[in-house]
Structure formats: structure tokens, C-alpha cells
């Protein structure tokens, strides 16, 4: 089977890095001998490596401040988790301010919400919060009769005809209106 440049080129980096499997390297090597374009790619890969060497060996790598490790270890043991931003100068001022503002806004919203909710609740008067027990039908009837100056009716009179019921209701309405 023909081994093409399309297959060879992506392998060249791994080949130069010493990361190509022996089986793949056995395919690549004969191709490199035959193919000038892929030999050029290999040469380019080697050239690229030489661009990285000076920076890797550069003495300009940032110096570690003295006492850094002791300071970090002390903070770690003291419970500083590092789960925060490493704030830039501007952010250092802005972020706490935004957080405080958010907290104040949340508190005001909560108070307003509670206030609105309390105001929308019916007050004690309209709730008829009367702790007296509700009257039974017979008690109502006797109360009506007492007010109208008639003798109390028998409890059986609860079973009224529709006309009587209407009359009783009218009588009751009359009493309410008098009140």
C-alpha cells in the first residue's frame, strides 16, 4: 500500500519529538528517503525546534521572590484556598464595590417585598377575628325572635317552606339593615 505525503506530514512532528510508535516510524522513514517535500518538512520541524531553545534556556525567566514558599505554605495552612481572583489593580477596587452594591440592592428588595406583602394582607378588623363561637341556627332564630318580641320557635321550624324561608331571610335582612 502506498504511503502518501498526506499520511506522512502529520507524523513528522511526533517523529522529531521521539514520540512516534516504532511501527509508524518504520512507515515514515522509507517515505522520507523518497520524498523531497517531506524531507523539507522534517528540516523545517528541526529548524522550528531551534527557535524554542533560547527561550527555554533563557535566563530571563522570572525570579521567584525570596520567602515565597514559606509565605505560601503559611497562607495555605491558615486556610487561604486560592479560590479567588488574582485581582488586577482596577478590579481590586471595582469588584468589592459591585459586591457590596449587589448586597445592598438585595437587602432593599427583600425589605420592599416584605413590606408589600404585609400591606396586602387583610387587617385584623376585616378578618372578623371574633373569638366568639359561631351561633347555631336555633340560637340565631331565638335571637331574631327576641329582637322582634315573639316567642321562640321550635327547632323543627328550621324545616321551613320556601315561602317561609324567604320571609325569614327578609326578616333577617331587615334586622341587619336596622343594625
Amino acid at each position: 500500500m502506498e504511503f502518501t505525503c498526506k499520511e506522512a506530514v502529520p507524523m513528522i512532528g511526533a517523529y522529531l519529538d521521539g514520540e512516534l510508535s516504532p511501527a509508524s516510524a518504520a512507515l515514515l522513514r522509507p517515505h522520507l528517503l523518497e520524498c523531497p517535500a517531506c524531507r523539507n518538512s522534517t528540516a523545517d520541524g528541526r529548524a522550528l525546534q531551534r527557535w524554542f531553545t533560547p527561550l527555554r534556556e533563557s535566563a530571563s525567566a522570572p525570579a521567584v521572590p525570596s520567602g515565597f514558599a514559606a509565605r505560601v505554605a503559611r497562607r495555605a495552612v491558615a486556610g487561604d484556598t486560592g479560590e479567588r481572583s488574582a485581582p488586577a489593580a482596577q478590579e481590586g477596587k471595582l469588584l468589592p464595590f459591585v459586591l457590596r452594591l449587589t448586597a445592598v440592592a438585595a437587602a432593599v428588595t427583600l425589605m420592599l417585598a416584605l413590606g408589600v406583602r404585609l400591606r396586602s394582607r387583610p387587617d385584623a378588623g376585616s378578618l372578623s377575628a371574633d373569638d366568639r363561637k359561631p351561633l347555631s341556627m336555633s340560637q340565631i332564630q331565638s335571637e331574631l325572635d327576641r329582637l322582634n318580641g315573639v316567642v321562640p320557635v321550635e327547632p323543627a321550624a328550621n324545616e321551613t317552606t320556601p315561602a317561609e324561608g324567604r320571609a325569614a331571610r327578609a326578616k333577617k335582612r331587615g334586622i341587619q339593615e336596622q343594625r
Binding site: 517535500a37 518538512s41 528540516a43 523545517d44 529548524a47 533560547p54
Partner: peptide, 18 residues
């Protein structure tokens, strides 16, 4: 695209060492 691959074109600009 194999044409876009580094150095795969004989006429492409090669990368010299520094």
C-alpha cells in the same frame, strides 16, 4: 488540507533556523 500543511509544498516558504 495537506496544501496548508507546514512545508508540504515544495514551493511554500520554508522555515529557517534562527
Amino acid at each position: 488540507s495537506p496544501d496548508g500543511i507546514e512545508g508540504s509544498r515544495p514551493t511554500g516558504t520554508r522555515l529557517p533556523a534562527p
